[in-house]
Each structure stands twice: as structure tokens, then as C-alpha cells.
Design a protein around this nucleic acid. Sequence first.
DNA 1: ATAGTCCTTTGCAGCGCTGCAAACGGAACT
DNA 2: AGTTCCGTTTGCAGCGCTGCAAAGGACTAT
Lengths: 338, 338
Amino acid sequence: MRETTLRDVAELAGVSPRTVSNVVNGYAKVTDGTRAKVERAIAELGYRPNVLARNLATGRSGQIVVVVPYLDTPYFAELLQAIIPAARKLGYNVLIDQTDGDRAHEEELIGRGSRRFLFDGMIISPLGLAQEDLSVRDPDLPLVVLGERRSDGTFDHVGIDDVAASTEAVSHLIAIGRRRIAAIGDQPYPTGEAAQLRTRGFRAAHAAAGLPVDESLIIGTARFNRIDGATAMAALLDREDPPDAVFCYSDLVASGAIHTLLGRGLRVPEDVAIIGYDDIEDGRYSQPTISTIQPDKKAIAQLAVDRLVMRIGSGGPVPGVELKVAHRLVPRQSTIGG
Amino acid sequence: MRETTLRDVAELAGVSPRTVSNVVNGYAKVTDGTRAKVERAIAELGYRPNVLARNLATGRSGQIVVVVPYLDTPYFAELLQAIIPAARKLGYNVLIDQTDGDRAHEEELIGRGSRRFLFDGMIISPLGLAQEDLSVRDPDLPLVVLGERRSDGTFDHVGIDDVAASTEAVSHLIAIGRRRIAAIGDQPYPTGEAAQLRTRGFRAAHAAAGLPVDESLIIGTARFNRIDGATAMAALLDREDPPDAVFCYSDLVASGAIHTLLGRGLRVPEDVAIIGYDDIEDGRYSQPTISTIQPDKKAIAQLAVDRLVMRIGSGGPVPGVELKVAHRLVPRQSTIGG
DNA sequence: ATAGTCCTTTGCAGCGCTGCAAACGGAACT
DNA sequence: AGTTCCGTTTGCAGCGCTGCAAAGGACTAT
């Protein structure tokens, strides 16, 4: 049986299809009488508007896409959890894409591919993509970038102040008396900008305390995963002068590092203090609980969606802005014990 | 500037729009000559097909929706991680929806709402929805259900054998010498079917070993979260006869339970052995690592997508089937120490 | 040379909706 | 009674593509 259409409803209600459309969309001035007639007909026929047709007619899809490197990384999962309802509230469906941090995949998404028609705008947390790459994108694509990539003025950027946050994290380690502090998670230019900002904070904290930085204690990792943290920590422990504290560039890295430490019979924080970044739920339950930098994820999500929807609505190009949301240091057992 | 259309390409290539369509879709017999001409024109104009228009014309959206209760629950995040590429490979985009376990929300999604046009089929992991509710759904919606809800014959169901898996988990606890075994995560009918199957396995393992079941050791929880596990474990420890092992209905519950145990200075597994369910990544890195039931998530994802796409393609109703995928017991430190 | 065959290409109509601007009808005013 | 005005309702065209079936062209068989 055929799906009922606007025309069917119009016929039953004795009005024009256009009027039915007006009622359905809550548009314009429709008298109570006609509205009632139409609504009765809609109910009787069980009519539901065909979104596909509407999309074609309006040229908009009512969808936004959120692109993250990995869906099963708790930080991104938690962020998405916040983005979806925020977008829904503004009438947008959320498409999700994961790129596995693959640069080509990210490029394809922001480029002018055929999928472009499926979404009205994009929120992306780039990983493989370097600053330059962002310019190859479809210039008509409303874009909001999360994380650490600076805006080039054509898109918005939402994130926390990574340098300040990292400085706080390391200063905290210094404050509790640690002097040989390592950093796990550094990454080279061009794609590792998030990492570089954190390394900068690492240095800044040392400078502020008048401490020298032992460059050999800055450990690079391919990613921010548990396994990277575990491996890097093992390498640090195999040295003859292991650190007494580690600033990990994500909570997952911290989790991996702790795993290695405890596995070797060392105590956290007594032997080595650990601080992470992101405040994922795991960190609040792991043993010990993980001190961390807590970004305001709800605010990031809300701000990103608001800005994106604004861009979509504006029609033309909108100057890009840098939006910083709040963060705070959350000391837990992995630094202060207890 | 207007987006270039099929017609523009046709004009430039000197063929009919229909032929361009054929080339774009890889359809039919198109001679190499015309194909070349058309492809040159496409490249020159930077043409990309308008998916919205195609959707309207074909009446299909090329999207499937995956509905999970919580996106930030690692189990679901890991499952989605597997579903997205599987669907993409078959030409489908994945829409994601989270319901917060809200029954009304789940009902709305499977009902005949207007969003129906946005997807060709649905994979749902129901939580609030009881068996009966599944019948209120849009009968034309191709549906695959994950988890524990049995098929009523109109949709497919993909999952592991929960009773068998739970039996194995508890038998493992018995095999390592535990006799006072608790269960955390039971839930009442009608929505707690997953939980009930696990409770059934709990009983079956006791029966097989000739052990009595202490009913007071079966603890109900509202959800399968860390906080539920932590709270329930605390209650168990406050009794005068605490258990020497706990079967947790999810790894998150296990994580919470361990958190409580260690917080009270108890040792895992020496004082209390813990086994979880789901094999989320956390469990492989927590301290101690968590013994668990490992469902073959890749297989679940692949099977679910394959069946769904088959259903979508079939046009008519397809008899529902029960599909069981493999699982295995993975003993780790939380039961066998080390 | 002519008819028949087969395969490529085409034209038409329409998917169901909305943008636009015109038509309509009633109320208010002269 | 006639005109103007204003707000509701309507008609038309078209978003860009595909399904269908027929047209066209090349080639083979008689």
C-alpha cells in the first residue's frame, strides 16, 4: 500500500496541498478552522511527511555530521553523548563518522564529495589532518573544529586552553614535591598539534618553577591509547634514572602507564605520581583514581552545535572564531594518594 | 554559484542525462566511448551526484540507524566501532541514536514516525523496551535486534548465548574453589531480560556443581554501570557473611565492584574473586585485569549488518531468525591472580 | 537488399515536497 | 455600491534524480 502524501491529505480535507504543507510546518497564517480540518485528515490517514522529499525541495538535509578519529575512545564517546541531544534539540539529526585518524579519510570527508549533500554542516575532531589540509575543504561546508587545531578564519574552533591546562597539570606535580617529571604523548609536527601544546605547557610549568627540563623525559607516542602509555612507561622504568612523576597526555595513556607501574610492583603515587588529561569516566574508578584535567565537555558540545547551526543558518561565510571553554584540574589518588 | 547537475554534464558531454546517470551508477551497458566522454565532462565540471535527489527518486535513503541506550558505554562504543565500517562497506551510512534506555524514546524510534524516511533499516539494542513493545513498531521497518530480546519472528536477533556464557562464568568461579558466590545486576521482568538470562546461568552453574543458591546474594541493579557495581558491592560487604566471589553482569559493574573492594583494603582475587561480562578494553588494563565473558563483537556487528541489508534488499517480509555468535571465557587476574 | 535481432541510448513522467507570487475573499472605508 | 486593503489560500514550477519502456543504431541472417 502506498504511503499517504500531502496530496491525499489535501483531498480529504478539501484544501490545497500547499495549505497542508503550511499546517504541517506550523507556518504562516492558517485559520483555526482550516488547521483543524487538516489535522483531522492527517490523523485519519496517518500521514507523516516525507523527509526525503522535503530535503530535496529545500536543499537541506537537516543532518549534521560529527567526525571523530575513534568512536571507542571514551573521550570522544562522552563528547558525542553530549553533542547528540544538543543537536537534536535544534532539529538536527547527527550522523557519525570515524576516521581511524586516517588523513585520507578525513580529507575525503571535508572535501567536496558526494556525501556532502547528506549534511548541512560538520563538527570534526581532526587527527591526521594538518593545518594546511583544512584548506582543501569544500568552502561551502559550515565547519566547527574541536580540539587543538587553530582556526584559519573560515571555521570556528572550540576547545580548552591546552597550554594553560597542561601548565596547571605539571605545576600540580611540582607542587606535590616532584622534581623528575616525565611527559608521555608528545607528537611531531604537523599532525601532533594537540601534543605540542601540551608539551609547551610542560615546559612552561618547569620554567615557572625555575626547574630545568630533562628533554629525554619527553616521550613521544603514536597515539593517546592505553597501550602507548603502557609501553612508554616501561621504557621510562628501564632507565637508570626513572621519573618520580609523569604527565600523560590523555587519561588512557595514564591508565596504561599505571598498568605498567603496578605490574612492576611500584606504588602510585608514592613511587611515581601520574596525572592524565580528559577526565574520562574510567579515571574516576580505576585503582588508583586518576588525577586529570577536566574539560567542560557539555560546554564544548553545546558551543560547537550552536555555532554550527548558526553558520548553517547564516547562508554566507561567517568569520571564524576561537572559542575557549573552561577546564579545571581535578586531583585524585594518582597524585595526592589517599 | 549553482551546483552542477546531471543535466549540465549531459550537455557538455553531448549525451542525455539518463546516460550520465547510467555512467555515474556504473549501470547497464555503456560503451567505453560514451563512458569516457561522460567521465571527462564529470571531471571538468567537478560534478557530484545529489544524494538527496537520488533518495527521493529511489525512495531509499542509503542510511541505517543504530540505536543504543548509551553511547558512552564502552560496550556499545566498541560495537558501533565495528558496525560503522561494516555498513559503509555495503554502501550504507550509519545514523546513531541513543535512547538513554528510555522506553518512550525507543518506541518512538521503532514506531512509524516521520524520521522513518531517513533510514532503510534499524539495528537496535533495546533496553527499556519489553518484548511486547516491539510489536508496536512500523511493520515495514527492517529490523535487527541485538542483545537478549528474542525474536517474535518478524525481525532477526543477534547475540551470544547468555545462559551458556553466564553458566561458564560462574562455573569458572566454582572451579577456582569459591563457594559463596554473589551476582550483581539482576533486573526484573519485563525489561531486564538480559539480566534474567544471566541469573539463569548463575543458577545453572550452581545446579551443575550441586551447590545451593543463596538467593540473598543475587543483587538487583537499575543499570549495568560502575556506580551500580560499586554500590552493590558495598552492600554485600556490609553483610556479616560477605561472598568470596562475584559474578558481575557487565565489566563496568565489575569495575565498580573492584573499586569498592580495593577501597576497603580487600584483595582481588584473594579475598573476593570478580568476573565480568562484555570484555571491554578497560578490563584488560584495570588493576587487577578483569576476567570476563568475551562476545565476538566483530561477528555480531557483521552479522547484524548483513542480515539487515539482506532484509532491506528483499523488499517483502522475511522470517526472523535467531543468530548466536561465539563467546568465550577469558580468565584474568580478577579470578586467577598473577 | 531487407528484415530481424540485440544492445545502447533516450524521453518522459514523476518521486513528494516547498518557494514564490498571484488569486481570492472578506472586511473596512468612501 | 464601489473601491481599497489585508491576510489566507492556492497554483505553478521545479529541486535533481531514476524507472520504465520505447527509440535508435549497428550488425547479422536470409
